[in-house]
Simulated assay, not measured.
Amino acid sequence: MHRPVPDGLAGLKRFVWEFWFFGLKNARSCLFVGLFFAAVFVTPRAGLWGVPRYDLLLIAALAIQIAMVATRLESWDELKAISLFHVVGFALEVFKTSSGIKSWAYPDFAYTKLWGVPLFSGFMYAAVGSYIIQAWRLFDLRILHHPLYPMAALVAVLIYANFFTHHYIGDYRWYLAACALGLYARTTVVYRPLDRDRRMPLLLAFVLIGFFIWLAENISTFAGVWAYPNQLGAWSTVHVGKWSSWSMLVVMTFTIVANLKHIKRHIHVPA
């Protein structure tokens, strides 16, 4: 998504142009998310042609994913990473919706439910990975001062484990957030919205992506795709505390993406 840059672009005019292309590239990076949410709103809750809503959403998600690979918007290696996000997310969904936890629920019937969780739900986690992969390509991303990979992997594993263990031994989210803060304190993401490199603390990117996922979660619960216990009688905003959970999940997702071979070439790890 490159366009000729007007001569003499400076000051407010440059800011407007760069901000516009920053938005366009982010929108393009959200291709999977956008198409999937379009399917959510278009599909009636009662389903279509005798096919339940959740099953139709699974068909839509698979069709979008196949199309992205077929058109080479995503490579086979990237698909493997996205599939890992699907598995990791689905396992978390099964645990969170289990009878002993009941953090949220999928109330509607579907043929493609396993352990009470519709199979399409894993694609919602995979969509986060898809966004990061697409943004990496479109913004020509580079990472400076990335922590050592084993340390980043350890924090990512602990973040994921905490989503399960906090129901039994306490929520250590903020301790893990402090670890991530120290680990990525010097890490900078270099991106190109137009023709010049810009920089942003990677931690800020984690927080911003987490915020937009929280907004998407509000949209999904409003549409009745799933519901938290306090939303069963009438819809209410998803608790803002979920923002931190999503930001932590983004840290974990980024760690997986950063291990893709073609992406590692653009990551600087200090010796």
Rank of each mutant, 00 (worst) to 15 (best):
S244W: 03
T97F: 10
D7M: 09
I59Q: 13
F21H: 07
I64N: 09
L183P: 14
V189C: 08
G23P: 00
Q231R: 10
F254E: 02
N218W: 02
A156R: 04
R14W: 04
S121R: 06
A271C: 07
A10F: 09
M200F: 13
V155A: 01
R53L: 01
Y106Q: 14
Y54W: 02
Y125P: 15
I132S: 03
G116K: 06
F36H: 08
P150R: 11
V87R: 14
L73C: 15
Y168G: 10
V88W: 01
T221L: 05
Y172G: 00
R186S: 03
T187I: 13
L260T: 02
G233N: 12
Y111L: 07
A152G: 00
A105M: 05
G89W: 07
L12F: 01
V238T: 11
K261E: 10
P201K: 11
V69S: 11
A153K: 06
I263W: 03
F163Q: 02
Y191M: 14
L260C: 04
Y54R: 00
R137G: 13
Q65L: 12
V87P: 12
V238D: 12
R198H: 07
F15R: 01
M151S: 10
G89D: 11
W76M: 04
C179N: 05
L79G: 12
Y172C: 03
T71L: 15
T71G: 12
N259P: 09
S130M: 03
L56K: 03
S83K: 06
L203N: 03
A70I: 00
G122I: 08
L203C: 04
V88D: 00
Q65D: 13
I213D: 14
W214K: 06
Y111S: 03
V69T: 11
A105V: 05
L92W: 07
N230I: 11
L73Q: 15
Q134Y: 08
F222E: 09
I143L: 11
E93S: 06
L204I: 03
V155L: 01
T165D: 04
S29Y: 06
I143P: 07
S220G: 06
V69I: 10
I82C: 15
I159V: 00
I213S: 13
V155G: 00
L48E: 08
T112A: 05
V257M: 03
Y168F: 12
D197S: 06
A10M: 11
A227E: 13
P229Y: 15
V87L: 15
G8H: 14
P6Q: 14
A258G: 01
S99P: 05
A177V: 04
K113D: 04
E78K: 05
R199E: 01
P201M: 07
E18D: 07
D108N: 06
Y125C: 12
V87F: 15
T112K: 05
G89E: 08
G210V: 08
G182F: 09
R199C: 00
G122T: 12
V88C: 01
A161E: 09
W235L: 15
G47Q: 03
M68V: 09
A67H: 10
V51Q: 08
D197Y: 04
Y131E: 04
